[in-house]
Simulated scan of single mutants.
Amino acid sequence: MKISKSFYFLILFSCLFGSAFAQKPKSGVIDDLALKLRFQKGLEGLHNKKLGTSLVTLGGQLTRRNTNFKLPEIKLESIHYEDFYERCKASVLVVGRLYKCGKCTKWHASSASGFALSEDGVIATNYHVVDTKEGVVLGAMDSNGKTFIVSEILAANKSDDVALLRLRDAKLSPLPLASRAAVGTAVSVISHPDGRYFTMTKGDVSRYFVARSKTGQANRMAITADYAKGSSGAPVLDSTGAVVGMVSATNSIYYSKVKGHNENLQMVVKSCVPVDAIHRLLR
């Protein structure tokens, strides 16, 4: 495929002057590149100040099965559809690690999702987001572009794919946890699919099922709201803005396989962690 000179210029321009874009975007308009660079620079700054907990240390804390952290009491109330996105977006976080790719000398930041459970820095995300030693520190960024370092893993469960983390010196806007949502309940997801930060999609709870893997089995909740890579750990919300689940994975269904290759994609199942799994870590 022929690539134009303007494409190469764009790449060179981003490398040389990318930091100039690492600023807070205008209200209501999301600049994905600016947020990506802001997160990376924020993690770099915290790492340079030696404020981070190493990924090796965090990995050793993944065996913690529960925490005595108490959820704050948050009154559940109906949210007008025009206010829903901005209200809930304030509680959604970008979660990622600072690492070097081995192909260059620059720092990079991975990107997944998470959400706040308390004002003083307790957040939730997936186990698989945290379960890595590739990098130096793990952190999170709120919708205002402020970056915090992960200081501790409070509790985690690999089969349920849930981890509760504490951020250092954070002040957040927490989401309440609901009880299990019935099949047919309307839900929304706010996540960061492939770096499209703070994207909201809508759908319904379609069923509950047992998911089996090499590490065991766990209950999962399927929804029809769309999401993709980078959405792991995002909240699944009911109409009151309460969490009824958390994004975990996708499973593609193909009609046929030809010479070892899947063909004719029919459906993508959106597999989520039910809110029950988060509640269990709090016992």
Rank of each mutant, 00 (worst) to 15 (best):
V92K: 00
K103P: 00
R38V: 00
K146I: 14
D31R: 10
S113N: 06
G102R: 05
K100L: 04
L55P: 12
A109K: 08
N126R: 04
G145D: 08
D142W: 06
L154E: 07
V56Q: 14
G102F: 09
E134T: 10
A155Y: 04
E77S: 12
L98A: 02
E152T: 09
L46M: 07
I30E: 09
Y127S: 04
K50Y: 13
K100F: 05
G135Q: 08
H80S: 13
G139K: 05
Y81L: 09
N66D: 14
E86Q: 10
N66R: 12
Q40Y: 00
I79H: 10
G139R: 07
G45E: 14
L62Y: 03
S111K: 01
E134W: 07
K100N: 10
I149E: 07
R64A: 13
E44Q: 15
T125W: 11
S91D: 05
L138E: 08
T53P: 06
Y81I: 05
E77F: 00
F84W: 13
D32H: 15
V122T: 04
N66Y: 14
N144L: 15
L55A: 04
S91N: 09
G52D: 14
S91V: 04
R38P: 00
H128Y: 11
I153V: 15
Y85H: 10
L71T: 02
F39E: 07
C101M: 07
S118T: 13
K146F: 12
I149Q: 08
G102T: 07
L154F: 08
N126D: 13
R65N: 13
H80L: 08
F148Y: 15
D83V: 00
D142E: 09
E73G: 06
K75R: 12
L117Q: 00
F69R: 00
A140T: 03
T63P: 00
G145T: 05
L117R: 02
L62I: 05
G135V: 02
N157G: 06
Q61R: 07
P72E: 09
E77L: 01
K158N: 11
